Each structure stands twice: as structure tokens, then as C-alpha cells.
Deep mutational scan, measured.
Amino acid sequence: MNLTVNGKPSTVDGAESLNVTELLSALKVAQAEYVTVELNGEVLEREAFDATTVKDGDAVEFLY
């Protein structure tokens, strides 16, 4: 899956889609429990991480 992460191209191997929690784990995001996630310009509530799917071509920003 090809994404733009914090403005840079990134690839997650072996996945066509992941939820936000899985993406944080796959990318080994440090202190993931404290990060705010913006997906395609929309800031996500932490409670929505498990239910929100990240797909090929999406833009993700991790805000600390």
C-alpha cells in the first residue's frame, strides 16, 4: 500500500488496507498513544482509529 505520510511517500508492504491502529503499529510510530492522526485532511478522534480504514493513495499526518 502506497501512502503519503507526513508529506513523504511511504509504503506498507503486504497490505491493501489497514485501520489507523494497525497502521500506527506497522509504521512503528513512537508513542502512538499520544499521536493525533489526520487522514486526508480530517483530524480523527482516537475512538475512531479502529473503525477508520486507511487505503492505498491516502495522505496521513501524525501530529505530536
Score class of each variant (00 low, 15 high):
residue 19 N to Y: 06
residue 8 K to S: 08
residue 14 G to D: 07
residue 38 E to N: 14
residue 28 K to Q: 12
residue 50 D to Y: 07
residue 6 N to G: 05
residue 63 L to G: 13
residue 48 A to W: 10
residue 61 E to I: 13
residue 63 L to C: 14
residue 35 V to I: 10
residue 42 E to Y: 11
residue 50 D to H: 08
residue 52 T to V: 10
residue 40 N to R: 02
residue 46 R to I: 06
residue 47 E to W: 13
residue 57 G to K: 04
residue 3 L to C: 05
residue 9 P to E: 07
residue 33 E to K: 06
residue 19 N to K: 07
residue 53 T to L: 14
residue 29 V to G: 05
residue 16 E to Y: 13
residue 52 T to F: 06
residue 4 T to M: 13
residue 13 D to Y: 15
residue 34 Y to P: 05
residue 16 E to C: 12
residue 46 R to K: 08
residue 33 E to P: 08
residue 52 T to Y: 06
residue 44 L to W: 03
residue 58 D to Q: 00
residue 37 V to Y: 01
residue 28 K to D: 10
residue 59 A to Y: 13
residue 12 V to H: 05
residue 50 D to N: 10
residue 20 V to K: 00
residue 8 K to D: 06
residue 14 G to A: 09
residue 60 V to P: 04
residue 7 G to S: 04
residue 56 D to P: 08
residue 15 A to I: 12
residue 34 Y to N: 10
residue 25 S to L: 14
residue 31 Q to W: 15
residue 32 A to C: 12
residue 22 E to Q: 13
residue 63 L to H: 15
residue 49 F to M: 05
residue 43 V to K: 11
residue 48 A to K: 12
residue 61 E to Y: 13
residue 24 L to Q: 01
residue 32 A to D: 09
residue 7 G to V: 01
residue 60 V to F: 09
residue 5 V to N: 02
residue 13 D to M: 14
residue 56 D to T: 09
residue 16 E to G: 11
residue 11 T to W: 15
residue 35 V to C: 07
residue 30 A to N: 12
residue 45 E to W: 07
residue 24 L to E: 03
residue 35 V to N: 03
residue 59 A to K: 15
residue 55 K to F: 10
residue 23 L to D: 01
residue 57 G to S: 03
residue 44 L to H: 02
residue 47 E to I: 07
residue 28 K to H: 13
residue 24 L to Y: 00
residue 58 D to N: 03
residue 57 G to L: 02
residue 40 N to G: 01
residue 16 E to V: 14
residue 37 V to K: 00
residue 48 A to H: 12
residue 14 G to N: 10
residue 51 A to Q: 13
residue 50 D to W: 07
residue 51 A to M: 13
residue 30 A to G: 10
residue 37 V to T: 01
residue 17 S to W: 10
residue 35 V to S: 04
residue 27 L to F: 07
residue 11 T to D: 05
residue 41 G to N: 05
residue 25 S to V: 15
residue 9 P to L: 09
residue 18 L to P: 03
residue 12 V to P: 03
residue 43 V to H: 07
residue 42 E to S: 11
residue 55 K to Q: 09
residue 26 A to E: 07
residue 17 S to T: 13
residue 8 K to H: 11
residue 52 T to R: 05
residue 26 A to F: 14
residue 35 V to Y: 08
residue 55 K to T: 08
residue 51 A to I: 14
residue 23 L to I: 05
residue 56 D to A: 09
residue 29 V to I: 12
residue 13 D to N: 13
residue 21 T to N: 11
residue 23 L to M: 06
residue 31 Q to S: 12
residue 12 V to Q: 03
residue 33 E to M: 09
residue 42 E to A: 10
residue 44 L to C: 06
residue 22 E to G: 08
residue 40 N to P: 00
residue 2 N to I: 12
residue 3 L to F: 07
residue 25 S to D: 12
residue 26 A to S: 07
residue 42 E to R: 11
residue 50 D to F: 06
residue 28 K to C: 14
residue 4 T to I: 13
residue 36 T to D: 06
residue 18 L to M: 15
residue 34 Y to C: 14
residue 39 L to I: 09
residue 20 V to D: 01
residue 52 T to P: 01
residue 36 T to Q: 10
residue 38 E to W: 15
residue 18 L to Q: 03
residue 20 V to C: 04
residue 36 T to W: 10
residue 54 V to E: 00
residue 15 A to W: 13
residue 45 E to L: 13
residue 42 E to N: 12
residue 57 G to W: 03
residue 21 T to E: 05
residue 61 E to S: 12
residue 29 V to F: 07
residue 56 D to H: 07
residue 62 F to P: 04
residue 28 K to P: 05
residue 18 L to R: 04
residue 55 K to C: 08
residue 4 T to V: 12
residue 58 D to E: 02
residue 52 T to H: 06
residue 54 V to L: 11
residue 56 D to Q: 07
residue 17 S to G: 09
residue 46 R to Y: 08
residue 12 V to S: 02
residue 41 G to M: 03
residue 22 E to L: 07
residue 40 N to Y: 02
residue 62 F to K: 02
residue 25 S to M: 13
residue 32 A to M: 11
residue 44 L to N: 01
residue 26 A to L: 14
residue 33 E to V: 08
residue 45 E to I: 09
residue 4 T to N: 06
residue 2 N to Y: 10
residue 58 D to L: 02
residue 47 E to F: 08
residue 27 L to Q: 02
residue 60 V to I: 13
residue 18 L to H: 03
residue 40 N to K: 01
residue 54 V to I: 10
residue 15 A to N: 08
residue 35 V to H: 04
residue 8 K to V: 13
residue 57 G to A: 04
residue 46 R to N: 06
residue 16 E to K: 13
residue 58 D to G: 00
residue 31 Q to N: 15
residue 45 E to S: 11
residue 36 T to M: 11
residue 11 T to S: 10
residue 23 L to E: 01
residue 60 V to R: 00
residue 58 D to W: 02
residue 40 N to W: 02
residue 59 A to R: 14
residue 51 A to G: 10
residue 31 Q to A: 12
residue 26 A to W: 14
residue 48 A to C: 11
residue 10 S to M: 15
residue 6 N to H: 04
residue 25 S to H: 12
residue 41 G to Y: 03
residue 57 G to T: 05
residue 38 E to F: 15
residue 39 L to Q: 01
residue 1 M to D: 01
residue 58 D to H: 02
residue 51 A to R: 14
residue 27 L to A: 00
residue 34 Y to I: 14
residue 2 N to G: 06
residue 32 A to S: 12
residue 23 L to F: 04
residue 23 L to A: 03
residue 42 E to M: 13
residue 32 A to N: 09
residue 29 V to E: 05
residue 45 E to F: 11
residue 36 T to C: 10
residue 58 D to A: 04
residue 20 V to I: 13
residue 12 V to T: 04
residue 19 N to W: 04
residue 7 G to H: 05
residue 19 N to T: 15
residue 63 L to E: 10
residue 14 G to K: 08
residue 9 P to H: 09
residue 59 A to F: 14
residue 30 A to F: 12
residue 10 S to Q: 15
residue 43 V to N: 05
residue 39 L to D: 00
residue 62 F to E: 02
residue 11 T to G: 06
residue 54 V to N: 01
residue 63 L to F: 14
residue 39 L to W: 04
residue 62 F to T: 04
residue 15 A to V: 14
residue 17 S to A: 09
residue 51 A to N: 13
residue 4 T to F: 08
residue 6 N to M: 05
residue 56 D to R: 03
residue 22 E to R: 06
residue 32 A to Q: 11
residue 9 P to Y: 09
residue 56 D to G: 07
residue 15 A to K: 13
residue 34 Y to H: 12
residue 57 G to H: 05
residue 28 K to N: 13
residue 1 M to H: 04
residue 1 M to S: 01
residue 5 V to I: 14
residue 49 F to I: 01
residue 20 V to M: 10
residue 12 V to D: 03
residue 34 Y to T: 11
residue 22 E to A: 10
residue 44 L to Y: 04
residue 5 V to Y: 01
residue 3 L to P: 02
residue 50 D to A: 09
residue 6 N to S: 06
residue 19 N to H: 04
residue 8 K to C: 13
residue 4 T to H: 07
residue 40 N to Q: 00
residue 35 V to K: 00
residue 59 A to H: 14
residue 59 A to V: 15
residue 48 A to N: 13
residue 30 A to E: 13
residue 51 A to W: 14
residue 12 V to G: 01
residue 64 Y to M: 09
residue 8 K to I: 13
residue 27 L to V: 03
residue 60 V to A: 02
residue 31 Q to F: 15
residue 3 L to E: 00
residue 55 K to V: 10
residue 14 G to L: 08
residue 54 V to H: 03
residue 64 Y to F: 10
residue 36 T to H: 09
residue 44 L to M: 04
residue 8 K to M: 11
residue 43 V to Q: 09
residue 14 G to C: 09
residue 22 E to H: 06
residue 31 Q to P: 09
residue 36 T to E: 07
residue 53 T to W: 15
residue 28 K to W: 05
residue 15 A to C: 13
residue 5 V to F: 03
residue 29 V to T: 05
residue 13 D to G: 11
residue 60 V to D: 03
residue 6 N to T: 04
residue 47 E to C: 10
residue 13 D to L: 15
residue 48 A to M: 13
residue 15 A to D: 06
residue 3 L to G: 00
residue 30 A to C: 14
residue 37 V to E: 00
residue 8 K to R: 12
residue 46 R to Q: 07
residue 49 F to W: 15
residue 30 A to L: 10
residue 49 F to D: 00
residue 34 Y to V: 11
residue 47 E to R: 06
residue 39 L to H: 04
residue 34 Y to W: 13
residue 63 L to I: 14
residue 16 E to I: 14
residue 62 F to R: 00
residue 16 E to S: 14
residue 43 V to R: 12
residue 33 E to N: 08
residue 12 V to Y: 08
residue 25 S to I: 15
residue 42 E to C: 12
residue 11 T to M: 11
residue 9 P to Q: 07
residue 29 V to Y: 06
residue 20 V to H: 01
residue 23 L to S: 01
residue 32 A to K: 10
residue 41 G to P: 05
residue 29 V to N: 03
residue 9 P to M: 06
residue 39 L to V: 06
residue 40 N to F: 01
residue 7 G to Y: 03
residue 40 N to A: 00
residue 27 L to D: 02
residue 18 L to C: 09
residue 31 Q to M: 14
residue 4 T to C: 13
residue 60 V to C: 05
residue 2 N to Q: 12
residue 59 A to E: 12
residue 20 V to W: 03
residue 34 Y to A: 09
residue 30 A to P: 14
residue 22 E to K: 07
residue 20 V to E: 01
residue 57 G to D: 04
residue 52 T to D: 02
residue 24 L to C: 04
residue 60 V to S: 02
residue 37 V to I: 08
residue 46 R to M: 06
residue 6 N to A: 05
residue 46 R to V: 06
residue 28 K to I: 06
residue 1 M to G: 03
residue 12 V to C: 07
residue 15 A to E: 07
residue 27 L to M: 07
residue 60 V to M: 05
residue 26 A to C: 11
residue 64 Y to C: 11
residue 21 T to P: 03
residue 33 E to Q: 11
residue 40 N to M: 02
residue 10 S to W: 15
residue 35 V to A: 05
residue 57 G to Q: 04
residue 10 S to L: 15
residue 28 K to R: 10
residue 31 Q to K: 11
residue 51 A to L: 13
residue 59 A to D: 09
residue 31 Q to V: 09
residue 41 G to A: 03
residue 21 T to I: 07
residue 29 V to R: 00
residue 8 K to G: 05
residue 12 V to M: 08
residue 17 S to Q: 11
residue 53 T to G: 06
residue 47 E to N: 11
residue 42 E to Q: 13
residue 54 V to K: 01
residue 5 V to C: 05
residue 30 A to H: 12
residue 47 E to Y: 08
residue 36 T to P: 02
residue 11 T to V: 13
residue 15 A to F: 15
residue 31 Q to D: 14
residue 4 T to Q: 07
